[in-house]
């Protein structure tokens, strides 16, 4: 498996996040699209594939963002990922998109962070995370929040899910997918 690449994908937010990683190697891309992620996804994937010099047949695992976010939007990454996985017999793992968005900002022993994705009807999707012993700790699970319910510290507003974070979180991810329809 050492020679295999991991494909990461997230379409739960207005950003299209994707990347191909193998140990320290790899390239991630984040593009703000708003809608229609499915039209841009494969072109960007092709670019990343060429940039890292990987072959499609070398994709051994996928880590996909499970949301929360737009229901139709988040399913794009999941459906595309399942199709890629079928071709290669690859394993599929799911990670919370909110965790993937705040992972680059979490510090060992540092304060909890609450990434927020703007939802409809003046609501936010939010969850609170810590990093302890190099692992993510979910302090508060993903849920819908009103503006007056937001914590006063450690807020990250609409951070893009990070493609490399999805890869780094693979050891803590579950195999299989559990889309978050909040």
């Amino acid at each position: 498996m050492g020679r295999m690449w991991t494909l990461t994908l997230d379409t739960a937010t207005p950003y299209l996040s994707l990347g191909l990683f193998r140990g320290e190697e790899g390239v991630g891309r984040v593009v703000r699209l708003g809608r229609r992620h499915e039209e841009a996804l494969f072109g960007l994937l092709e670019e990343v594939l060429a940039e890292v010099g990987a072959k499609r047949s070398e994709i051994g695992a996928l880590v996909l963002g499970e949301g929360p976010g737009s229901y139709t939007g988040l399913r794009i990454a999941l459906a595309a990922g399942l199709g890629v996985a079928l071709a290669q017999g690859a394993r599929v793992y799911g990670v919370r998109s909110l965790l993937a968005a705040c992972w680059p900002f979490l510090e060992e022993g540092g304060p909890p962070l609450t990434p927020l994705f703007t939802a409809r009807n003046r609501l936010y999707y939010g969850a609170t995370y810590l990093k302890r012993g190099g692992k993510p700790v979910e302090v508060l699970p993903p849920r819908k929040l009103k503006a007056e319910e937001l914590p006063q510290r450690g807020l990250l507003l609409d951070p893009p899910p990070d493609p490399r974070a999805l890869y780094e979180l693979l050891p803590y991810a579950r195999e299989g997918l559990e889309p978050l329809y909040l």
């Binding site: 494969f42 399913r75 459906a79 595309a80 399942l82 199709g83 890629v84 996985a85 079928l86 071709a87």
Partner: peptide, 10 residues
């Protein structure tokens, strides 16, 4: 549709 594209692409 997106699943099929993923399969075809891969």
């Amino acid at each position: 549709y997106t699943f099929a594209k993923g399969l075809a692409w891969a």
